[in-house]
């Protein structure tokens, strides 16, 4: 699973950081840094984070596969 956060929408509510602290981190008080590639053991937490984001800025899905299909 991959994620991308629409940081144009993100308002730094940090709900994602609380719920999946290995994947999302605050940089300073408000800036968000995250790991785009989600290992299987973090998938459930990331789903919770995506559901919780107050501005629904976290998008999850699979990436286009490398052979272009």
């Amino acid at each position: 699973m991959r994620i991308v956060v629409d940081l144009t929408r993100c308002q730094g509510y940090a709900q994602c950081v609380f719920l999946a602290p290995k994947m999302f981190q605050l940089h300073g008080e408000e800036g968000l840094l995250y790991a785009p590639a989600v290992p299987d053991d973090q998938a459930e937490r990331v789903r919770q984070a995506a559901a919780a984001c107050p501005v629904q800025a976290i998008l999850l899905g699979e990436e286009v596969s490398a052979d272009g299909r």
Binding site: A14, V17, F18, L19, A20, P21, Q25, L26, G28, E29, R45
Partner: peptide
Amino acid sequence: RTLAMRPFGPPHSPGRVD
């Protein structure tokens, strides 16, 4: 709120609730 957040959540205690 920032002071109250220190022992509870990010950036100071990001793993607390988890």
